[in-house]
């Protein structure tokens, strides 16, 4: 498999096939990130596609010294934030496609994940994106800082606050 850096270089020089390869490689990751926050599959598809179009438009400005994935996630985050500003997330739709696990029955791991990330959706978009990049994409704080265009210390503060708020939300839901 060709590394991201080479694909990006070729896409910058005009290779549509290489850009398509990048889309194929990361579409699923970006979609999961967005759908988990937005809660609506159709909107998530739209936002994901918008994010990739923005990547295409801005690929010339991408600094190839850095990793591609954090940059892609920063664009996805920005696309998601502009969507959330326009529209409130559709809670009903999300509930219909992913039913809320009940607290009465025994909560298994999948349900637990569902609970945690559902609660995380109530966080501010910045805090949510930071948690996602850290716990799902397993990026380190420096990479997240570069992706979010924030300082290293600022990212740490965001992570601490996000964990604190998440814990509070989980306790409120119990």
């Amino acid at each position: 498999m060709e590394p991201d850096k080479e694909l990006v270089e070729k896409a910058r020089c005009g290779s549509v096939a290489c850009f398509e390869e990048l889309v194929q490689r990361y579409y699923e990751d970006v979609f999961r990130f967005i759908v988990s926050r937005v809660g609506n599959r159709q909107d998530a598809e739209d936002i994901t596609q918008t994010a990739f179009l923005n990547v295409y438009k801005g690929i010339e400005s991408f600094d190839t010294r850095y990793s591609f994935k954090p940059w892609l996630f920063s664009i996805a985050h920005n696309s998601m934030v502009s969507y959330l500003r326009r529209k409130k997330p559709n809670e009903e739709f999300y509930d219909s496609c992913c039913p809320r696990p009940s607290h009465e029955k025994k909560v298994d791991d999948a349900d637990h994940a569902e609970l945690v990330w559902r609660a995380a959706r109530k966080l501010a978009p910045d805090q949510y994106s930071v948690l996602w990049m850290r716990y799902n994409e397993e990026m380190d704080n420096r990479t997240i800082a570069r992706a979010m265009n924030k300082s290293y210390a600022n990212v740490r503060v965001l992570v601490h606050r996000a964990r604190n708020n998440l814990s509070r939300i989980l306790n409120e839901e119990k």
């Binding site: 988990s36 994901t48 994940a113």
Partner: peptide, 21 residues
């Protein structure tokens, strides 16, 4: 909780990348 609660597996529309292109 976050370490344990890995992503809910939502799969994207397989035609999504084509739509982008």
């Amino acid at each position: 909780a976050l370490k344990k609660g890995r992503v809910p597996q939502e799969s994207a529309d397989p035609m999504g990348p084509r739509a982008v292109m």
